[in-house]
């Protein structure tokens, strides 16, 4: 992070300004990814109207929000997606769209270019066979074509993947694919439970041994900010906020602790009142007794949301995160 980015992060963190906002436009999706945190029965849930999203964008802009991400489900299933992008661009947001890349044709690319979308992030999980099996549809070739179309129009595009027991052997393939396409590949290997607390995505986690081998082989390094637990930082509710298709406001997209609903209160009130109470209640480092006495805390990428999902206790211990921390501690020895 450069000096100005660092300064902006900390000033918004300390002053609790929603610098980063994620709006889940829909739970609908045309794919069936195995690790998805959205249960399939959520796909029929009601969605925020165009007008309501415009109101939210206005409010977030007034509060100092700069980075806005549209995600889903699959955001391109919304017919008003370009109206929303256009409105947010008029309000001078940096717009990122998370997509599976299957609904983007030449016409869509032209519109993304026209409206100056700042970034498109596309999920990809492996070779054609592995990807198609993982997402439950025969779409790999279309996704690669989408990436090429976006690159041709000079649109900022990046790939992202999550490492699971079903695709970890394809990691080298994904790195080469990204290199050949001239895009960055973002990798994660921590899965989340579904938002209805169904922990079935955890079945996809690599075994301890495979994860250890993977981290060693790929030389994945722990980032410096986690090396001192006392400097533990979580942006949830501090300078990050997430809004669901049903209008529920969360401290971050992974944190199923509802701060309010924009159909009952306006967003500004939820942010300034409810989120303030939330962070005061939850983000007190002294309360992390288990973590403070844990001998591998310096390797832990602690996530209060994952702890809350797994243990119903924000100060609890997430087995998934601890597993990764253990491996880092072993490697560091």
């Amino acid at each position: 992070m450069d000096k100005i980015s660092d300064e902006l992060f900390w000033s918004t963190y300390k002053n609790r300004i929603p610098l980063y906002t994620i709006i889940e436009l829909t739970y609908r999706c045309n794919l069936f990814c195995k690790h998805c945190y959205i249960p399939q029965y959520y796909r029929s849930k009601p969605e925020l109207s165009t007008k309501k999203i415009f109101e939210l964008i206005e409010e977030i802009s007034s509060l100092g929000g700069l980075y806005l991400t549209f995600t889903g489900g699959e955001p391109f299933l919304r017919k008003d997606i370009f109206e929303l992008i256009n409105f947010a661009k008029q309000k001078k947001f940096y717009i990122t769209v998370f997509t599976n890349g299957t609904l983007i044709d030449e016409d869509v690319v032209k519109k993304l270019k026209f409206f100056n979308v700042d970034r498109v992030e596309i999920s990809i999980y492996g070779t054609k066979k592995v990807h198609n099996k993982f997402v439950g549809c025969n779409v790999f070739d279309k996704v690669v074509e989408t990436i090429r179309l976006l690159k041709q129009e000079n649109i900022n595009v990046c790939l992202k993947t999550v490492i699971t027991k079903e695709n970890f052997k394809d990691y080298m393939f994904l790195k080469k694919l990204a290199r050949n396409l001239g895009v960055v590949l973002k990798t994660d290997f921590v899965l989340s439970a579904k938002i209805d607390n169904d922990c079935s995505p955890f079945k996809l986690l690599l075994s301890d041994k495979d994860l250890e081998n993977f981290i060693k082989k790929e030389k994945i390094k722990i980032t410096a900010e986690y090396k001192n637990f006392n400097n533990f930082v979580c942006s949830a509710g501090m300078n990050i906020v997430s809004i669901s298709p049903e209008g529920k406001v969360y401290p971050c997209i992974e944190f199923p602790y509802q701060l309010g609903n924009v159909f009952k209160e306006n967003f500004t009130t939820i942010w300034q009142k409810n989120a303030t109470q939330f962070v005061k209640k939850f983000f007190d480092i002294k309360k992390y007794k288990k973590c403070l006495s844990c001998n591998i805390n310096m390797y832990c990428r602690r996530c209060p949301a994952l702890c809350f999902i797994e243990t119903s206790d924000i100060y609890g211990c997430s087995s998934v995160v601890k597993k990764v921390a253990k491996i880092y501690s072993l490697i560091s020895m």
């Binding site: 918004t12 100092g64 700069l66 001078k92 947001f93 717009i95 100056n116």
Partner: peptide, 12 residues
């Protein structure tokens, strides 16, 4: 290609 906002005392 600029996105911008007045955040606190400064424009970014």
């Amino acid at each position: 290609h600029l996105a911008y906002r007045k955040i606190g005392e400064f424009l970014y």
